[in-house]
Computed example of a mutant assay.
Amino acid sequence: YDPTDPMGKMFIGFLAIMAEFESDLNRQRTKAGVEVAKSKGKMRGKQHKLSPLRRNLLLRDHETGRFTVDDLCAGYDLKKTALYENLKLARNERAGAAPQPELAEDELSA
């Protein structure tokens, strides 16, 4: 099809409309699936790699100043972004402001 003649323009426009329609359907299905998972308590997000005790040790090691960030990353098997996130979380936990994970309804009744 020649995209410069009227029939070609119509055909390409039709393909574009169908692609957009399929994209909208996919987005709608995904949103509905996420809502169902949230209502069932299945959406919790990624779990932290370090336990609260290991985060506390990481914070202590970081605050001593004896270790570089690279040493801490290697010792705790973390990337730099994860290291800083765990340090932030450890400070919040130490201050008593740790966010509590949401519990599913079946866990609350146990």
Rank of each mutant, 00 (worst) to 15 (best):
Y1T: 09
Y1F: 13
T4K: 12
M7D: 15
G8T: 02
M10Q: 14
M10E: 14
F11L: 14
I12H: 15
I12N: 13
G13L: 01
G13D: 13
F14Y: 15
L15F: 10
A16H: 10
A19K: 10
E20N: 10
E20T: 10
F21Q: 14
S23D: 10
N26D: 13
R29G: 00
R29H: 04
A32L: 08
V34Y: 06
V34K: 06
V36P: 00
G41M: 01
M43G: 00
G45C: 02
G45M: 01
K46P: 06
H48N: 11
K49R: 11
S51E: 04
P52E: 00
P52F: 01
P52N: 03
P52V: 01
R54E: 11
R54F: 08
R55Q: 15
R55I: 04
L57H: 15
D61E: 13
H62S: 13
T64F: 07
G65Y: 03
T68F: 06
D70G: 05
L72D: 04
L72S: 02
C73H: 05
C73K: 07
A74N: 08
G75Q: 07
D77W: 02
D77G: 02
L78E: 12
K79N: 12
T81F: 08
A82D: 11
L83T: 03
L83F: 07
E85Q: 15
N86L: 03
L87C: 14
K88T: 15
L89W: 04
A90I: 01
R91K: 14
A97F: 08
A98E: 04
P99V: 11
P101S: 06
P101H: 09
P101N: 08
E102L: 09
L103E: 11
E105L: 08
E105T: 08
D106S: 07
A110C: 04
